[in-house]
């Protein structure tokens, strides 16, 4: 059976096609201002027996495509368990929100918390800060890792942090050290939410920000926990959705 999962996030849309549970194809596109149009674009030429939508645009997609939907909480939980069986803690830092999910031994969500009020501590925050410092977002983590000493950033609000960064640059501070301070600020924010929801055991780290090596390193250092990241963490939600689509369809066939 060919099943599809589509994760319509606020910053990007990911789509995964599974052939009997094995990944056959993965695609990604920016959300832009027209999520449904972009989703259509992304799905062009793809064939599947069943599709399931998740992410903030899921309900729009449901109406347009008669697809079923699940929340990104359930999708990320399912994706994490697929790559790391027995996982009980999931940290997802996406484009515009972050969340921590706690699972029981059978992979069922038992608690979650989200920060979706503002861009603080998310991918968007890092993106704006990279831009302010003149770094490329893809190598931002590598640049931060080059810093020799700690530089504390006190603002977590994206707007305030941006002006804090601007004044640090004006004071002649080293951009790599500022980058390091920003990364650590993001990690510390995630850690307080992480400890509130689930304080022990390995952490499955998902979402686009999990691609940043310096965030991963600092997360492991500060939490003293094992940080598990699959090869394409930004696809985790879509993979979870495609897996659940397959499982729901099998249920129906029976």
């Amino acid at each position: 059976m060919i099943s599809a999962g589509i994760d319509i996030g606020s910053r990007s849309i990911e789509c995964v096609i599974l052939n009997n549970g094995k990944i056959r194809e993965m695609r990604k596109i920016d959300t832009g201002f027209d999520p449904i149009g972009q989703a259509k674009q992304l799905l062009k030429g793809l064939e599947f027996d069943t599709i399931l939508a998740t992410g903030y645009g899921r309900n729009l997609f449901e109406i347009e495509h008669e697809a079923t939907t699940i929340t990104e909480i359930k999708a990320h939980a399912r994706g994490a368990v697929c790559f790391f069986p027995g996982a009980i803690t999931v940290l997802d830092i996406g484009g515009q929100d972050s969340k921590v999910i706690k699972l029981n031994e059978s992979g069922k969500v038992i608690r979650f918390e989200m920060n979706d009020r503002c861009a603080a501590g998310t991918g968007k925050f890092l993106e704006i800060m990279a831009q302010t410092l003149g770094f490329n977002i893809d190598t931002f983590g590598i640049e931060a890792a080059k810093a020799k000493k700690d530089l504390k950033i006190s603002s977590m609000c994206t707007v305030f942090a941006e002006s804090e960064v601007t004044s640090l640059v004006a004071k002649g501070e080293n951009p790599n050290e500022i980058a390091r301070g920003l990364h650590i600020a993001v990690v510390k924010r995630a850690v307080s939410m992480l400890n509130r929801v689930s304080s022990q055991g390995p952490v499955v780290f998902t979402g686009g920000v999990a691609n940043n090596p310096f965030i991963r390193e600092q997360l492991a250092r500060i939490t003293k926990r094992e940080i598990l990241v699959q090869k394409t963490p930004e696809m985790n939600g879509a993979i979870g959705a495609a897996l659940i689509a397959m499982e729901q369809n099998k249920g129906k066939e029976k």
Binding site: Y56, N59, I70, T71, E72, I73, K74, V109, F112, M114, D116, R117
Partner: peptide, 11 residues
């Protein structure tokens, strides 16, 4: 945002 939390809670 509330809808996501509430739907995830019902799941």
């Amino acid at each position: 945002q509330l809808r996501v939390r509430i739907e995830a809670f019902l799941e």
